[in-house]
Amino acid sequence: MKKEIFITDYNCVTPLGFNVEANWKALSEGKSGVALHKIIDNQDAFYASMIDSEKLNEEFNRFFTQNDNESFTRLEKMLLLSLQPLIDKHKPSENTAFILSTTKGNISLLKKQSELPEGVYLSKLAEKIAHFFGFKTKPVVVSNACVSGVMAIAVAKNMILAGRYKDAFVIAGDELSEFVISGFNSFQAIGSGPCKPYDKNRNGINIGEAAAAAYITAEPSENEATIFKVLGDSAVNDANHISGPSRTGDGLYASIKNAMIEAQVSSEQIDFISAHGTATLYNDEMEAIAFNRMELQHIPLNSMKGYYGHCLGASGLLESIISMESALYNTLLPSKNFEETGVSQPLNIIKENQTASIRYILKTASGFGGCNAAIVLEKC
Rank of each mutant, 00 (worst) to 15 (best):
R247T: 14
P194K: 15
K3W: 07
I99H: 02
H298K: 13
A373T: 02
G173L: 00
M1F: 09
G367N: 00
L332S: 07
Y282C: 10
L347I: 09
S101Q: 04
A235M: 12
E224A: 12
G149H: 01
M159T: 06
F169V: 03
T137M: 12
H276A: 03
F291Q: 00
L362N: 00
G191P: 04
A48E: 04
R164N: 15
A26M: 12
S53Q: 15
L125F: 11
T217S: 04
S366E: 10
H37T: 12
V13L: 13
N106S: 09
K38M: 12
E295N: 15
N95F: 10
Y215K: 07
F72S: 03
N348H: 06
V155T: 11
H37F: 06
S266G: 12
E224T: 07
L231A: 05
Y10C: 08
L231N: 00
E178Y: 08
S186I: 12
Q113M: 15
S326Y: 04
V155I: 09
E325K: 10
T341I: 15
G163K: 08
V13T: 13
H276L: 08
T65V: 15
G342H: 07
G149Y: 00
I350W: 02
N283T: 01
A156G: 08
A225V: 14
I361R: 00
A214M: 10
D44C: 06
V230R: 01
C195I: 07
A26V: 12
M260G: 01
N258T: 10
G370P: 01
A22K: 13
P117T: 03
T226E: 09
H298I: 08
L80G: 05
N67T: 14
I375H: 00
V13Q: 01
A263W: 01
Y10M: 12
P346Y: 05
K38D: 13
I270F: 03
R74W: 05
N223P: 05
S186C: 12
A35T: 15
K91C: 15
L100T: 00
A212S: 11
M324V: 11
C371K: 05
L110E: 05
A356T: 13
N61W: 11
I181D: 02
I227D: 07
L231K: 02
A239I: 08
L109H: 11
E94Q: 15
G191N: 01
T226P: 03
A26C: 12
A259I: 04
E76A: 03
C195H: 02
G119K: 10
S148V: 02
L318W: 06
R74L: 11
L317V: 05
C380V: 15
V140W: 02
Y253Q: 10
K379C: 08
S148C: 10
P346N: 11
L317A: 03
S303Y: 02
F133G: 03
K196L: 06
E94G: 10
A152Y: 05
I322E: 03
L109W: 10
I190N: 01
P220A: 04
L296S: 03
V120P: 01
G30N: 12
A189Y: 03
F18C: 08
N292H: 09
N223W: 13
A239Y: 10
L332A: 13
M50H: 14
I350E: 01
I299L: 06
N258P: 10
L27F: 05
Y360L: 07
M260Y: 01
H310W: 07
N61C: 14
N302E: 11
I216S: 03
G163I: 10
T8G: 08
G251T: 04
L161Q: 07
L333D: 02
H276K: 04
I273R: 01
T217W: 00
